[in-house]
Amino acid sequence: MPSRDFERRLDMASYILKRTLALIPMLLILSVLVFIIIQLPPGDFLTVYVQRLRESGVLINEEEIMRLTREFALDKPLYVQYFTWIKNIILHGNFGRSFQWNKPVSELIGERVAMSAIISLFSVVFVWIVGVSIGIISAVKQYSAFDYFFTFIGFIGVSIPGFLLALIVIWIAYSKFGIYISGLFSEAYVDAPWSLAKFFDMLKRIWIPVFIIALSGIAGNIRIMRANLLDELGKQYVTVARAKGLPERRLLFKYPIRIAANPMISTIGWTLPGIFSGEALASIVLNLPTIGPMLNQALLAQDMYLAGSLVLIMGALTLIGTLISDILLAWADPRIRFGSGGGDN
């Protein structure tokens, strides 16, 4: 006889498996969409490439063109091109070529994707820790000075777009303190290879962009956490727990906070796209070496393999983020894990 505990573990495992398998069709759809985007501008990238070279008067190497045509199956029908493109990405990590930079895309984006990931990760963690803790205090001390202050900050944070805030911060830092906040590294390290010193240099400067990117998320999380927790605090199970003789702080964390956090876990997934786009705008203003500005330039220049690859990577990361938040939610909330919904009767 398998125990109830074992059954539940099995349930959880099958839930994770199902969710992970569902990721595959979604990634396929994403790749098709990205491929369509790449194909949207008139002419394939090679024609554009050749035309650019010709315009700048460079001699065209016929052999090189033949090689590229073969590599991307440009002389074959569209679906073959699609599969060749996917095959190159999966098997060789070859995302195509950026004609703007005349380099393979994979070479261009590696470091920038990492930078974006770091900044986004920092922002998400920051949004969560700061937003949720302020939300909790605001709800527990409802209508206190603290609550009013952060409600005010919250409204401002939700309403001011990140890039505007970035501009204001740059202006204040420059006009009042004479500091020019730009980039992620001080001058000494911009072109230096990675080292521990460079990493610490980055840690020193990353807070301003992280704060700017995170502010609207923090504000949103304060509002959501405060509202959720106020709802939960009024529920009967809180009174019941109090009637048991549970100390107040332990009670808060075990019951209402735990339950109020559940809906927030499910939103991690869709805060990612918001963070990405906020990061792109703030990065353009703050001149950060992330994928945001690069995507912006690539789109303007119709550098479609580069733009497509960036969209593909961000899309895939968002899907994976959503998967992680789904699994976290199932782990946190048994009602999700075992299916039956509310189950009231």
Binding site: Q236, Y237, A243, K244, G245, L246, P247, Y255, I259, D333
Partner: peptide, 28 residues
């Protein structure tokens, strides 16, 4: 109400059951 003395009485010497069994137990 929040002192240890009160908490030792609550749930121990005096216990209480409530109106709404649907919401009186925490769902998680």
């Amino acid at each position: 109400p929040n002192s240890e003395e009160a908490r030792k009485i609550r749930g121990n010497e005096i216990a209480m059951i409530f109106q709404e069994p649907m919401t009186a137990l925490a769902p998680v």
